[in-house]
Nucleic acid binder design. Structure first.
Lengths: 343, 343
DNA sequence: ATGAAAGCGCTAACAA
DNA sequence: TTGTTAGCGCTTTCAT
């Protein structure tokens, strides 16, 4: 018997129930409980409860080489997309008795490698990855290591994978339809980095949406921002403004809300009145973006739901022992606010 | 020899280096490397590198009952205080070869118990706790379980503990000094819930700061909001406005930025012009609060630094094997923006 | 239906 | 300095 006061082990439970540890193990595990006499099982359970027995997940992991643990790789925690996603993931995991190992890569490939290594060594049963680029070598390694994973919010060009994303194409389409309905024909686009699938995908959706309204794509009304930031957004808008004559466009679609935020700064800088002089639309519906002046018209991505869906998909894949690559697309919501008006 | 293709274990390394596994273990562990012949150690290291050996942390944990893992309990991940804190913690941990187990309690005591249980069962070496209330039974359990922990951003009344907080008293004092300097004498206070140390502490700091300027505390100018939310903040300001005659106060200090945000709504509702009619100050310096109209004067809490400091303190305590209760107070920064003006 | 025994991969007390 | 041995707590095959 383990000395009193110490945490009880399975042996203690077995002893108290008068059975062999193996039997106690079977009785306590729902999967194998059927292989044990009902009465015996009851006795074991009672003993376990009486002793306050808690199975040691580490010992179990060592034996089964499954950790009941999921790793999550995030590029930047302070980006408002991710907290709701992490929250969604965490909620599902804790419900299904998994624990979340979280790592912030800080958008740093080397750091990402290190963190991935740590997660893999800890034998995570699966990964939720929010850092994917269109071309992303890490994914090849993860596939080689045979760890199930699901991409959130992003896709990759390299492999078919499990992924959960918002319906960005629809978001962009609704945005364009809204602007066109308001009378805009010359709609500029401030793209995010084209190295990300979101950047490339939204730009392409913008072009298609214009075409659907018989509006030609004007290359001079499109510029790529070097990052999804306020600063780069501001730079982008200045490029657009300086590279075209006044009135060359009446509306600006920003690749996301951060880029749109940069536009607010340029508006102040140059005395541009939004939406009277220029309409502006963002993407993401960041927290509190509705409080800005003017409140930003934007597209809401259901980040929490993406997290929930991703976690469920991943856990199901793990449970079934096989991953069927597929992309789950969740609906987005277009939200009209004060930053868009008649052309 | 483990079959080729499988992950190499310590035995494989030992065999390849021609030593006993015990020796290999000692050679590979920095703590014990000194107890092994330098040449032998080299040989082992080389073998390890050649095989791509990665120690199995699970096996190590089982043996040493230390997991090299830190748990973090957060009340609400979507609260903008926490992502930077988590980030700070994560950065330190990953540098010092620890992994972060994150759990969002959703402000739910029962859920918190469950999550704590999961973390404890996983043998976390320590905990970072962002959920503490002034009176918090969970802490008693954690102490009984002898798991080192550090409180972030909050304190508790029940026990002396390790904690890292921002210098809230100084923040409030600077706020009051600023308002008084502007000519305000009747300064209302919209307190956060007094069940939290931050709520109680800031209110008390407000009273002391007023006294320091020979301003009497007027109970009718103080109201407690039921939560740190926009909605409750709005309700609070309405109570204040409705419970006093016009002009009874010329400035409002909000318990935090969320509560201040609620005030913006009431301003619009009632046609109050800020800061002309009423000055407003928040607390926290939430992301983008400087973009609001008018930009909010507030106090910046160094959340990232708090996370970093907390993680270091905790890891040091774990390393030294003993926790010395102490409160580390980090300086805050008072930031004047457009929401405050002359009385 | 249950017991016996082995072992996941590692570390640490002890012996040599 | 190195090898031997035992065992962390659990699961699981094999007997019975």
């Amino acid at each position: 018997m383990t000395e009193p006061g110490a945490k009880p082990t399975l042996r203690d439970v077995a002893q108290k129930a008068g059975v062999h540890p193996g039997t106690a193990s079977r009785a306590l595990n729902p999967e194998t409980a059927s292989k044990v006499n009902a009465a015996t099982a009851k006795r074991v359970m009672r003993a376990a409860k009486a002793l306050g027995y808690r199975p040691n997940p580490i010992a179990r992991s060592l034996r089964t080489s499954r950790s009941h643990t999921i790793g999550m790789l995030i590029p930047d925690f302070t980006n408002s997309m991710f907290p709701p996603m992490v929250r969604g993931v965490d909620r599902v995991l804790s419900e299904r008795d998994y624990t979340l190992l979280l790592a912030d890569t800080d958008n740093n490939a080397e750091r990402e490698e290190r963190l991935y290594g740590a997660l893999r060594d800890r034998q995570v049963d699966g990964l939720v990855i929010g850092t994917a680029l269109r071309h992303h070598p890490l994914l090849t390694r993860i596939i080689a290591d045979e760890i199930p994973f699901v991409l959130v919010n992003r896709l990759t060009d390299d492999h078919p994978t499990l992924a959960v994303v918002g319906d960005e194409v629809s978001g962009i389409r609704q945005t364009v339809a809204h602007l066109v309905g308001l009378g805009h024909r010359r709609i500029a686009y401030l793209s995010g980095p084209l190295t990300t699938t979101t950047g490339a995908g939204r730009l392409s959706a913008y072009k298609h949406a214009l075409a659907a309204h018989d509006i030609g794509v004007a290359p001079e009304l499109i510029t790529e921002c070097a990052a999804w930031t306020e600063v780069e957004g501001a730079k982008g808008l200045r490029r657009l403004l300086d590279g075209n004559e006044a009135g060359a466009f009446t509306a600006v679609m920003a690749g996301n809300d951060m880029i749109a935020l940069g536009c607010y700064g340029v508006f102040r800088e140059r005395g541009i009145v939004c939406p009277d002089d220029l309409s502006l639309v963002g993407f993401n519906d960041m927290p509190f973006i509705d409080h800005f002046a003017p409140p930003l018209t934007t597209v809401r991505i259901p980040n929490g739901d993406i997290g929930v869906e991703a976690a469920n998909l991943l856990l199901d894949a793990i449970g079934s022992g096989s991953v069927t690559p597929k992309v789950v697309t969740l609906p987005v919501r277009f939200i009209v606010r004060g930053s868009t008006g008649p052309a």
